[in-house]
Design a protein around this nucleic acid. Structure first.
Length: 594
RNA sequence: GCGCCCUUAGCUCAGUUGGAUAGAGCAACAGCCUUCUAAGCUGUGGGUCGGUGGUUCGAGUCCACCAGGGCGCGCCA
């Protein structure tokens, strides 16, 4: 772990304590050392004098002056000057700044790894789509955001488990079984029409998409006509529904895993809702909460202002969510006696708590925003406040092609599936693009733009920067030999020749990577990684472009091997950080553009 | 009616958890380049951060109210 901002922060705190003795720890804890926004302000700046001003009962400017004097004595600091309302700007000696490069080269992609998470056990649950059909673009964002967030937290030192909750219980799964049964009957040659069949299904035939045709065919292959009546009509549901449902869920989950794999997502744990119900875990959990006095039979008030037409007061089994900050108490049993989705979800989260996680993060669609307070309440109740719960909400993605919205036509059962999307633009473009917006902001996914090879396409721009790095390194190895240009060797070369401002700009950016990772992880915002990489790519392209005008500024200089090696060290470090960031995003770095 | 999220340049969006003169890409404008490193480069203009108050050394960021957009609101998942 090498974070020069953390390093210099420690030095600033030491100097501050010399200047202002007896500062409480909670004051020094607020001291920050941050990159400057403007290079004219130096390499880093600290707010130390300002946070110390009040407890020290001295004006910030006075402390800043004394602090600057103390810091100027540091051999690695070229200049420390008070500025603005009480900042102290630091300009490092070039050697101190350049020392970032060997640190990056030795760590490789591990550069930026942090211990900020302290090994805290975190469970990140994402996707968790019903196994009732193929994954579509609606699921895609949550999948990418969840996966990248999990990677990010792992990089920041959390012990992360990636998880998928299979909603394989409940009415929708029964409807799925009926839909698969219809395809089965068709496969064995029933004479029923779709409408005749639908009339016999409780709630009607719901899933009419063709994706169940192969499932029906397989059922027919395995069971022949045994699941139907002798006339190939509808048999009593008890005789087939468990068989059909289990088979169909297995088939759908296999398809889901395949889709996720195509997206580069592979959760560590798949948890089944049905298993929780069947094992009695859900009922035991409800009994336990009842024992704690958190469950009662009661009647809810109708929603204020807009009362639903069919509202009637009815006693229900309720969980005291209001005791933990929710707006109303929440029902746990449906009128047919079975558990609500929420009841099983409490049991599921209790299961995660029992597995020892200290933090549960659910990545959910924004339409589940109203569900978050009750989950938070449930986790607080079950864990007795010992486990934290957070939700990351993902807003809708609108797909656009040629400036026109791409509509899903549900009637035909055809919609934009995740697989279609990946086939059209590629996995890396899908993943990167999904991370170019804050998760809780709506996003437009422009199919033309994400494959464009221009600067305004961040996917291309970052990939291109990496490819350029690799191209230079290949040519450098050709020129100076593979051994001399390997990362370990470059970590030891003299770097004094790196003095140009665009070179220093890249180094400053590389130096900021560890704190960027940490900040993104603590904010649960993986999109920041995409923006960091875009900025780094931009710095690098700018450096590259200087060589277009002036051949002396190109990376490879035939007659000046020492200078070339220094530049190759910079290039190799840049490539390593890009790879480090792309690894978090789950995007493959490319070696060359084609 | 209530709750949550959003509102930043003409457009699409960042904004390092309260820091300095609010940034980037596109579009616009002005030059350069047409290759040595193709998928261009450099520079310029552009802002009441939805509005009004408040908190403090300091607010795009926190609080209150208002306006506009999205989502949700007892047995669906």
């Amino acid at each position: 772990m090498t974070d020069i901002f953390a390093d210099f922060r420690a030095r600033v705190v030491t100097a501050l304590r010399e200047v202002v003795p007896d500062l409480p720890d909670d004051v020094t804890a607020r001291v920050e050392v941050t990159p400057t926004r403007d290079p004219a302000h130096g390499d880093m700046a600290t707010n130390a004098a300002m946070v110390a001003a009040k407890p020290a009962r001295q004006p910030p400017a006075k402390i800043a002056a004394a602090l600057a004097a103390a810091l100027a004595a540091d051999a690695d600091i070229a200049e420390a000057v008070p500025a603005g309302p009480g900042f102290v700007n630091l300009r490092l000696r070039p050697a101190a700044l350049r020392a970032v490069l060997p640190a990056v080269l030795r760590a490789g992609e591990a550069y930026g790894d942090s211990t900020a998470g302290g090994g805290l056990a975190v469970n990140v649950e994402y996707v968790s789509a019903n196994p009732t059909g193929p994954m579509h673009i609606g699921h895609c964002r949550g999948a990418v955001v969840g996966d990248a967030l999990a990677n990010l937290l792992a990089k920041a030192g959390f012990a992360v488990t990636k998880e998928y909750y299979v909603n394989d219980a409940g009415a929708q799964v029964t409807a799925l079984a009926w839909a698969a049964y219809w395809r089965y009957l068709q496969a064995i040659g029933t004479t029923l029409t779709e409408e005749e069949f639908s009339d016999e299904v409780p709630g009607g035939l719901q899933y009419r998409g063709e994706y169940l045709v192969p499932v029906g065919a397989e059922l027919a292959a395995h069971h022949g006509p045994a699941l139907a009546t002798a006339t190939r009509g509808i048999a009593a549901p008890e005789s087939w529904i468990d068989t059909v449902r289990d088979f169909t869920i297995a088939a759908m989950m296999q398809a889901t895993r395949d889709d996720l794999a195509a997206l580069g997502v592979a959760q560590d744990v798949f948890s089944s809702e049905r298993a929780l119900v069947d094992s009695g875990a859900a009922d035991r959990l409800i009994a336990r909460l009842r024992g704690d006095g958190l469950i009662y039979e009661g009647v809810l008030e109708p929603p204020k202002g807009k009362t639903p037409e069919d509202w009637e007061p009815r006693p229900q089994t309720l969980f005291r969510a209001t005791q933990f900050g929710d707006d109303v108490d929440r029902p746990l049993r449906k009128s047919d006696g079975s558990n609500t989705y929420f009841a099983n979800d409490i049991a599921y989260h209790a299961d995660k708590i029992d597995r020892g996680f200290a933090l549960l993060i659910d990545v959910l669609g924004a339409d589940h925003g109203g569900y978050v307070p009750r989950l938070k309440a449930a986790v607080a109740a079950v864990s007795r406040g010992n486990t934290k719960f957070e939700a990351v909400l993902c807003q809708i993605v609108h797909v656009v092609r040629d400036g026109q919205p791409v509509k899903m036509s549900k009637r035909a059962g055809s919609f934009v599936t995740l697989r279609d999307l990946i086939d059209e633009v590629g996995r890396d473009a899908v993943r990167f693009t999904m991370l170019t917006r804050k998760a809780d902001a709506q996003m437009e996914f422009d199919l033309n733009a994400v494959v464009a090879q221009t600067r305004d396409n961040p996917v291309f721009y970052v990939q291109y920067a990496h490819a350029r790095c690799r191209s230079v390194l290949r040519a450098g190895a050709e020129m100076l030999g593979a051994a001399a240009t390997a990362p370990e060797a470059l970590a030891g070369v003299a770097l004094d020749s790196l003095t140009a401002e665009p070179e220093l700009a890249v180094i400053r950016r590389l130096a900021a990577w560890p704190r960027g990772v940490e900040a993104a992880a603590l904010a649960r915002e993986p999109h920041r990684i995409a923006f960091f990489l875009y900025d780094l790519a931009s710095d690098f392209h700018m450096l590259w472009n200087r060589g277009r005008d002036d051949a002396a500024l190109r990376f490879l200089q035939v007659d000046r091997p020492a200078e070339t090696l220094a530049r190759l060290a910079l290039v190799a470090a840049t490539a390593a950080v890009i790879r480090s960031g792309l690894a978090v995003m789950g995007v493959t770095p490319v070696e060359e553009m084609r």
